[in-house]
Design a protein around this nucleic acid. Sequence first.
DNA 1: TTGTATGCGTTATCAA
DNA 2: TTGATAACGCATACAA
Lengths: 341, 341
Amino acid sequence: MSAKPPTSLDVARDAGVSQATVSYVLNNREGARISDETRARVQEAADRLGYVPHAGARTLRTGHSGLVLVPLADIPYGPLAVGLMEELDRELSRLGYSMIQYGARRLKGVAAARAWAELRPVAVLAPAERLTRQAVNVLHSAGIRAVIGIGAVGWSSEIVSTVTMDHEEIGATAAEHLLARGSRTLTAIIPTEDGLRDMGLLRAVGVQRVAAAHGVPYTQVDLAFSETATAARLDAWRAAGISGEGRTKHGVFAYNDDYAMLLMAVLADNGFAVPGNVAVVGCDDLPLAKLLRPRLTTVRLNVTDAPALLAQTLDEVVKEGVTRQPRLALWTHALVERDST
Amino acid sequence: MSAKPPTSLDVARDAGVSQATVSYVLNNREGARISDETRARVQEAADRLGYVPHAGARTLRTGHSGLVLVPLADIPYGPLAVGLMEELDRELSRLGYSMIQYGARRLKGVAAARAWAELRPVAVLAPAERLTRQAVNVLHSAGIRAVIGIGAVGWSSEIVSTVTMDHEEIGATAAEHLLARGSRTLTAIIPTEDGLRDMGLLRAVGVQRVAAAHGVPYTQVDLAFSETATAARLDAWRAAGISGEGRTKHGVFAYNDDYAMLLMAVLADNGFAVPGNVAVVGCDDLPLAKLLRPRLTTVRLNVTDAPALLAQTLDEVVKEGVTRQPRLALWTHALVERDST
DNA sequence: TTGTATGCGTTATCAA
DNA sequence: TTGATAACGCATACAA
């Protein structure tokens, strides 16, 4: 049934021309002019045989693959990340690249980098924490022109270009809003899940900074994503003076909308009034957050211009070489005020 | 800075051996025995030069890439799909394949298939609706051994092996439960979003079947994911006799947890009692569904054994050829009863 | 135990 | 306007 795939030589034989001519026609080479008649005959033969060029062979010959590799292992999947990837894919293909996502979660560190390098992508776009100096060396010595990290401000920025999300400012934005709406204490929730914890700590720094600037009491609490863990925390809060009966309003930045929803559910179960006793701010602006009652105030990450800028920067680094390592601060954010504060 | 990547020939020169020896050492060839001393010298040279084999060249030479291509465009991303992909990746790499996800959303139909075929993957695992007969022909004639669809029962099953999710049974399970809990009418919600609508219709068929079998009134309603659209629907329901005051209990299968949450929020705003007047069943068992009050009854899609089975089947098809096209019904589901029914 | 030689499918240089 | 031919990096049959 399925014999070996047709090669350009098969097409050439079928069309009665040389193999080089096939290559010229199919790649629209400017250099050599081909008669319209030959051109048509080649096209027709290629279509009929179902000819598809062999990417590996082309890469071998030309020395570049046009592949942009994105090893997405522990990036938190959500509407945000998915939307970003879709847009990025679009932008990259507009510039002539093909974006592929590569798993191989098995492999760590340099071994992972080697696996990526085997495909000889022209660029790698990876979570910043995976881009150790060793790993980046492997990638560069395999001829990969652009290595770009996605991460938080300050991570591995001397090694590679990094697309940064300014987590600290996210926390600060939430905190400022909580104070403006009357909160007299500030609490930052830090998720205990791997991959979230680091970002949680950075966001908490922003909250703490604002608290200090305003001379307001600050607490931070580690929290696992479960109702029982949250309920237990509530008891501790009660002991610390935060309660459903007091007159002071307590502000909580819940790290993201998921944690905010968890918190609000448990608060409601325990007789706390939101936003009366406790004001809650989430992050991500999930579609579901609007469905909560009270509606959830949240920090929306603005992703609109990020993909285009990122793709463009990648293209520049690829073409001009890695002369300098610009830090890209592509993510902006904005507070979306609703009813929970 | 970054010269051309080192080749196996560079390693050979550095180690003072022939290029073939390098290949033998690095691939642990049984055929030819290499002295431990040479072996060590080659390894050391490879490490020092940062040698990484060229996947394209290897593919060209051996005739197979070990790549499993998964073009995930419009698959609904959620914890379910992500978990499935992660597990699948693990299983496939255990079997010696590398899974890569390929975007290229730009391209449609045969053009997309051609883009996939360029990479000469050994297998393609794609949404069933993208696997038209033409597209599959392109893939097969490019030498791709296994083409497997992911979709609903009955889709393109004569063309390729298909991993099916039995949407109709999901709807039926939800409906049976609603009746058992006392609902006297049944309604199926069908999302209007692209990519979800088809599955919604299939699930609705299951609801309708159960309704007919029990002689219970059945309605189905198209619904966009917005509060205003849902509120408008509620007015229509009131006109149809479903209200927050009646004595009869109305059962709604809301397609998934997102729609269920939307519905429950709007129901609460409009004075409907859940589950008193309206009982709601979702699907997916999202972590957030437990946080709703009342807690959401849902149909959980059981994904545990799917990835291993899928990987294994793929491996068999690759090795034995496409003699037959087994239909795989890998997804099971189970109702998780909570408070909303 | 190791080296030599060949070909995989493609593009590009040069000659016709 | 088109055709021979070489080279890309690697794996392997065969020779030494």
